[in-house]
Nucleic acid binder design. Sequence first.
DNA 1: TTAGTGATATCC
DNA 2: GATATCACTAAA
Length: 171
Amino acid sequence: MAIRLEKSFFKRDVLEVAPELVGKLVCHRMADGSVIRDRITETEAYRGEEDKACHASKGRTKRTELLYSEGGVFYVYLCYGMHWLMNVVTGNAGEPQGVLIRAGELYRGPAKLTKNLRIDGSLNGVTAGDPADVWFEDDGYRPEIITAPRVGVDYAGEYWKQKEWRFIGKE
DNA sequence: TTAGTGATATCC
DNA sequence: GATATCACTAAA
């Protein structure tokens, strides 16, 4: 039996939420009522203004403002003009933190995942669960988690580059 | 390895 | 208004 994750699940430190999100299911209800699901196999944590790889490191702007809201809010970002990347804000309001959903069991790769789940900018700022049509489910699956350095953060410098804030579910 | 793509931030 | 940047993918 699958349990829908409560908003409180996201109101914790991103370093607690990110690994726990691995193995969970992302669900998205379509306009016609059908639901698309995929199991998360890989996440990454982005935390704080001091984390140069985090968008919030550049300061609070219209775009990053969502990261400062409280846990459970989706932060969907268009990258390279054609790829939507899906994040979930964690922690309390005022603490810029977020989990990037990097890959699913069916759709590997952050942009493929959003493409196949029909995630796009219209979901930016939507709260998970609630009346929203996007939410997370826990069906009891607990994969073994392995950590690794984050991807695509060369520009963030050695210190942040080496942080093992990438969480991958082991088969 | 490179092209393609568009929103955002930063610089006039 | 103009340009540089970007947490990517697909094709070669």
